[in-house]
Design a protein around this nucleic acid. Structure first.
Lengths: 160, 160
DNA sequence: GATGAAACGGTAACGTT
DNA sequence: AACGTTACCGTTTCATC
């Protein structure tokens, strides 16, 4: 589905979407219009979902990052729970397999704002518990990368 | 630090960084050159960290998303642990407060690639345990938002 | 911060392999 | 069918007020 040209173009755009098509073309071995055509195709195919500015949480007034595990009775995707996404502080919501049902990534002004968010959570019918993991340091935070580690063992049988 | 103009500009750029300065200016009530100057300032101030393409995990061959809790003896930030970031599959690494020391966000080709990543993890001295939360559905996944919920209660004392 | 102008890059049409 | 070349036009970006 994606050839080597596409991978190089995507790699460049993830690194810096402000690069000119000509410059990306140098990196990928294509002319600017060729890059343009491929980017247009990758966009409409949904490979590129969007092009956005990444902001510094602290600078925009949200220095506190936390992952919140939410336990629910029944199954997770309630109307009320989904509405937590209306808070700009909530960046991610995933249902997961494991000892919790839902993981939220939230970025808030501080502990009080987090508490308010948790209060909103406990008002929702079916929410039985939550565990918050407050981030102390972020060592890595980057977008989906275009490349993949190639040489995974096909059948990684652990040696005894 | 950020005025209302900045917030509007940042909001527009997070939504779509491909917008022209003229169009952002309409939305914010500024001329294109004024927007340009502010964006330049926001960039060099580090408020805008980067401008990137957001890719669809499935399309780039990484349909499996998981959060991995890593428990370690001593304290988390070992040289070896940091090198997990060399895998393009590892998107985030945070040290956290709670019943684990470190949370990794990883996106892989499938279960086997995740297993290989976990094997790499257990090779690291000091890593004692891990718990993986495999994402079943993603309901929300968006960048840091420029806006904040305004009317948090200042001192949210829970009523009895 | 706005206005006007110059340089640059995005984008379409066309020709080539 | 996909890329390169050419050329135009909108946008970025700078100088001036």
């Amino acid at each position: 589905m994606l050839d080597a040209f596409d991978r190089k173009i995507l790699g460049a755009l993830v690194e810096d979407a402000g690069l000119s098509y000509a410059r990306i073309g140098e990196r990928a071995g294509l002319s600017a219009p060729a890059v343009f055509e491929r980017v247009k195709r990758l966009r409409s195919a949904g490979v590129i979902e969007s092009v956005t500015a990444r902001l510094d949480g602290e600078s925009v007034g949200k220095p506190l990052l936390a992952f919140v595990h939410v336990d629910t009775t029944g199954w997770g995707k309630s109307e009320r729970l989904m509405r937590m996404g209306e808070f700009p502080e909530v960046e991610e919501m995933h249902s997961v397999a494991g000892d919790t049902g839902m993981i939220l990534k939230v970025r808030t002004q501080g502990p009080q704002a987090l508490e308010h968010l948790l209060l909103q959570l406990y008002v929702i019918p079916g929410v039985t518990a939550s565990r918050s993991y407050v981030v102390l340091s972020t060592y890595l935070d980057r977008p989906v990368q275009a490349d993949v580690t190639l040489d995974w063992p096909k059948h990684p049988l652990p040696k005894e």
